[in-house]
Amino acid sequence: MNAAVRPSLSVHSFADLKPVRRALAEAAAQQAERERLQREAARRAQIERQLFAHSVGPVQPLRGQDERHWHQHQLPEPVPVQRQLDEARVLLESLSDEFDVTTLLDVDDQLSYRRPGMGLDVTRKLRSGAWSIQRHLDLHGLRTDEAREALAEFIRLAHRTGLRCVRVVHGKGLGSPGRVPVLKSRVQRWLVQKKEVLAFVQARPLDGGAGALVVLLVPGRR
């Protein structure tokens, strides 16, 4: 009786194990495939390393991070648009054509100007060429408003870059109506109003004579 029951129970148990066996077999096959792919990838990597070493020859690795130099990308400085607009407006507003300059000019054979408190030796030395002319501005052909703006900008930049002596060519007025040097008196008015200007004199003949002024500037930064 007991012998008859065991075969029946044993067959029933094997049937129940078939799905488990199939799952185990599939898992083993997948594991074997993964291992094969890993071996294949390692083999390809080894071949690539050997090929690289054969192509470039012997190399020496970097000793450490401290010896590396990293270059940071520098962004361009922002353009100070508002400051430029403000400076341009100040330039136009600060130089008046109605400024009375006659009381400030030294009346001699050649009109000259020196800031109050400056001695006569300043204009004398300036007229004799004690300071060499470092830059010049030619206002020929400019309208009054253009000349005023150009002169203000020229003086400002000359002072900012540390120049001491410059020449301003305003012309002799030979091409003006009535042959009157229109810009000459205006340039004198404008220069007297510039805080960067210490003195100015009429240029020597070799530097333009009555058609130009030599201007001494306050010492600025270089």
Results as ranks from 00 to 15, higher is better:
Ile47Lys: 12
Val214Ala: 05
Gly119Gln: 11
Ala3Ser: 13
Gly178Asn: 02
Arg124Cys: 10
Leu142Phe: 03
Ser185Asp: 03
Leu62Cys: 13
Phe14Ala: 06
Leu17Trp: 12
Lys172Ile: 12
Arg21Val: 15
Glu146Lys: 01
Leu174Asn: 05
Leu17Val: 14
Glu35Ser: 07
Gly141Gln: 09
Leu92Pro: 01
Arg127His: 15
Lys18Pro: 06
Leu157Asp: 12
Asp108Gln: 12
Gln193Ser: 09
Arg22Tyr: 08
Ile133Ser: 08
Ser13Lys: 02
Leu37Met: 07
His71Val: 14
Glu26Ser: 10
Gln46Cys: 12
Glu149Tyr: 15
Ser112Cys: 03
Leu51Ile: 13
Gly208Cys: 01
Arg204Tyr: 05
Gln72Leu: 07
Ser132Cys: 13
Asp207Arg: 06
Arg44Val: 14
Thr103Gly: 12
Leu9Gly: 12
Gly208Gln: 01
Ala32Glu: 04
Leu142Lys: 00
Leu104Phe: 15
Arg114Thr: 06
Arg156Pro: 10
Ala29Ser: 14
Ala32Gln: 05
Val101Gln: 02
Arg36Asn: 11
Val182Ile: 03
Leu183Glu: 02
Arg68Trp: 08
Arg167Trp: 00
Arg6Asn: 14
Ala147Gly: 14
Gly171Glu: 00
His54Ala: 15
Arg204Trp: 05
Arg21Phe: 08
Arg156Ile: 09
Leu62Gln: 10
Ala28Asp: 15
Ala210Thr: 08
Ala88Lys: 02
Arg49Trp: 05
Ala15Pro: 01
Val166His: 13
Val107Gln: 13
Arg34Ala: 09
Val192Asp: 11
Asp86Met: 04
Ile155Asn: 07
Gly64Gln: 00
Gly119Arg: 03
Ala42Ile: 04
Leu139Cys: 11
